[in-house]
Amino acid sequence: MARVKSMKKKTKIQNTIIYIFLVLLSIIWLIPIAYILFISFHNDNSKGAMVTMPDYLTFQHYINLFAKGSQYPQWFLNTLIVALVTMVINTFFVMAVAYTMSRLRFKSRKTLMSINLILGMFPGFMSMIAIYNILKLVKLDQTLVGLTLCYTMTSGMGFYVAKGFFDTISRSLDEAARIDGATNAQIFYKIILPLSKPIIVYTLVQSFMGPWMDYIFCNVILRNKSDQWTVAMGMYKWLNTQEKVNTQFVDFFAGSVLISIPIMSVFLATQKYYIAGVTGGAVKG
């Protein structure tokens, strides 16, 4: 009996230590976020806000973002349009390629897959400047259309997660349909697509989120055209503009909070798909 009691005591002490550890961890991981949120209500609008306590808390910075002369709403609208178009086209491309690679058997399937693997080894933005030159030739540089083309055209390469999903759908479904005289196209949109709602949702969300987070391609394609920027680009450039750093410093944090809320909620809602993407996609690739 005594031994059981001491065991219990031991685990209790262990658990307490672990709880303390976990609380510490949570603090480390949450403090920067809490700090961003806190500063966004600071009454001072200069760099000094980071090191002084506020006299009072205010919503002024959030109002500033939508005041006259602020480009924030414009950036937001740009991003929304680009994201919606990207979402539709990317999902179509990814579904088409994933279905082909997973279900159809044709001569050059293996070759195409290995070419895709090799192309993936080139660093993504190695060819940025070439893409910029291409867009310049067709007079689409520094426009949102060009940016959208950048986001959408190569999306067919990222089919691995969706292919992994299609691989799990039983093949006997296809065969049964084929015996009933269905064509491959009919099998695709009458049988496979209705069964793949989760992966369609995942692809839609993923491709919708892309433009909200990207600042690299945006920087290359749009350069100094500030009325065409997306939110991520605008926020990134904010801290590179000397005058804005000095007089609109805290507005940056307010803008960050505002843009983070929708992205965060989408991420939290789809995190289980993210796990499937990491573990499933890598193994199947």
Binding site: L25, I33, I36, A232, S256, S260, I263, L268
Partner: peptide
């Protein structure tokens, strides 16, 4: 708690 920090887009959390 941990995941919240990665849910914030990188360009925000890292710039901050």
């Amino acid at each position: 708690c941990l995941v919240l920090s990665v849910a914030v887009p990188q360009f925000v959390s890292l710039l901050a």
